[in-house]
């Protein structure tokens, strides 16, 4: 499996480490239902058969966190972008394999 790193280009998956679901976002701790929201945020994950967004860390390359779009059934990767959107250096736009 190869991941199209927006900085380094197409690289073998061995250069990356996998974190997991990139679709969850940390809820505000001062919400009225914060405890319930945090339970969902910390423990509950979708397990889609098909397109999924995942966090991968390019440890052996540019040392950036990426959001990778992967089909969980075929491992086909349809794109990758920086998890932290670059501000002034937005020139490294999303690349497709």
């Amino acid at each position: 499996m190869r991941i199209p790193c927006p900085y380094c280009g197409l690289r073998d998956a061995h250069e990356f480490s996998y974190l997991g679901d990139a679709t969850v976002s940390r809820p505000a701790p001062d919400m009225p239902d914060a405890q319930e929201a945090f339970f969902h945020y910390v423990y509950l994950r979708e397990n889609p058969a098909g397109a999924h967004e995942e966090l991968w860390y390019h440890a052996a390359g540019c040392r950036q966190w990426l959001v990778v779009s992967r089909d969980t059934r075929t491992h086909e990767i349809s794109g990758a972008s920086f998890a932290r959107a670059p501000k002034a250096d937005a020139s490294h736009a999303e690349v497709k394999p």
Partner: peptide
């Protein structure tokens, strides 16, 4: 250097290793 490339001037070289690095 823009992306993973090098740039040199005289005895100094810069190599791109990551965004802003």
């Amino acid at each position: 250097p823009h992306g993973p490339r090098t740039a040199s001037a005289g005895d100094l070289t810069l190599v791109g290793t990551g965004p802003r690095r």
